[in-house]
Amino acid sequence: MTMNPTAQQSPTAAPGRALWPWYGALLLLAAAFWACYSFFVTTKLGQWIDEAALRGGEAFLAADKTRGPALAFLDHMPAASALLAAGFILFALVRRHDFVRPIVAGALLLGSAGSTQLLKHVVLERPDLNISEASMNSFPSGHTTFAAAAMATIFIVTPVAHRPLLALLGWGYAAVAGASTLVLGWHRPSDVIAAYLVVAWWSVLAGLFLRHAHGSSAAPATTGNQTRAAPERILRFLAILGIPMAAGALALAVAMPHPAIGTVGNVQLLLFLAVGLALVLGTAMVAGQFVHVLFARYGAPIRRRFVRGMK
């Protein structure tokens, strides 16, 4: 009987090739982060657009009655996000006897939050270009990083069948958290975008580690029903919408006049706030779809126990 060599070797052939998308994604996200920093933080035009969007947020929510509940939401967001992530990690440990993914998910959360603080306070600097009164570096946003990273930890420990819904809800939550920091005048758009890129980078690193740990003997489970699931279609649609929305908003911001920042009226500031929101929301949806597709196509299978058959 003649055996088909392709069928025999397909699960294990060229194992290193299956890891190329992960390494490529890490490089792409790192390049996007550096491009975001280089333009929005180190150039006068980028700082101007960032600052105009921030001042637009301050002008939009100037009333104390409006700001109070929103500020309370931001104050409690890190703790609420951490509790939610911890609950899912604990469930994976106790209910499914899964040890590897919860540990990796915890490392993702700590790595994202820690690297954000390191980048913000030690590695990166914000040059004073006479645009902003605040010269202290706020890039990336710590609040947004924690919110997005908490959702990413839940995504890591969630079974494959439920990941499209978790990706949609998780990155939707991260988008709301990032938009809130902009509207309330806590962070500039680039701070939020950088936070998404940091979390996406750590999510990819976690996925790469799991792919190494679980090997390439089994492909991730995908079915026609999962591919056509409503949450996955919605996330894909939002990502497709987010690309031209963010690109168009940035092109509009670059094309508009940039007078002395203190002379810009409220109408123009609100327009730049809309630009900032488009950049934030568009980036969140694209990042969510990017991570989800990478895990769906190239991710390692979930194993409910670290050692098969362990009692």
Rank of each mutant, 00 (worst) to 15 (best):
T12D: 10
R233Q: 11
G282K: 05
H143A: 05
F39W: 04
G215M: 15
G207N: 06
R228L: 06
L28K: 04
T43I: 06
D191M: 08
H121N: 13
A149D: 01
M285K: 04
L110A: 15
F306T: 12
G111H: 09
S180C: 06
M136W: 15
A219D: 13
A30S: 08
G106L: 11
P5K: 11
V291R: 00
H292V: 04
T283G: 09
M136T: 14
L235K: 00
H162L: 06
R96K: 14
L277V: 06
P244G: 09
R55E: 05
V204R: 04
K311R: 15
A300T: 02
V254T: 12
A167H: 00
A152N: 03
G56Y: 00
P15C: 10
Q9C: 14
I154G: 00
C36P: 04
V41S: 01
R163V: 01
T158G: 02
L279P: 01
T222M: 12
V123N: 11
C36E: 06
L54H: 03
H97K: 11
A80Q: 15
W171I: 01
Y173W: 11
K311P: 14
A14S: 13
T145D: 10
V123Y: 14
F60V: 03
F139V: 10
A30N: 07
D64N: 11
R308N: 15
W22F: 09
F33V: 08
A31G: 09
A32R: 07
H258L: 10
M245W: 10
I103E: 14
G224V: 00
N4L: 10
G178Q: 01
H187D: 05
L238C: 05
F39H: 03
H121S: 12
Y298H: 08
A25D: 07
R163P: 00
P259A: 11
R297H: 08
R101E: 14
I131R: 01
T227R: 09
A161L: 04
L168T: 00
W201N: 06
K44A: 09
W20P: 07
L270F: 07
Y23A: 14
A150T: 05
A53G: 03
Y196Q: 11
H292W: 06
S115H: 15
F295C: 03
P15A: 11
T158L: 02
T2P: 12
R126S: 13
D191L: 08
A284Y: 00
K65R: 11
E51P: 02
L165K: 00
T263P: 07
R305H: 11
H162D: 05
Q8Y: 13
G170K: 00
G215P: 12
A175G: 05
G242C: 10
P259N: 12
A278C: 10
L270E: 04
A247R: 10
D98Q: 12
S81N: 11
A147T: 06
H143W: 04
R304P: 06
R163T: 00
I154E: 00
S190N: 11
L279K: 02
P164L: 01
H76R: 15
L61A: 04
A52V: 02
T2D: 15
P127I: 10
D64V: 07
A35K: 10
S141T: 02
A79P: 12
L119V: 13
S217V: 14
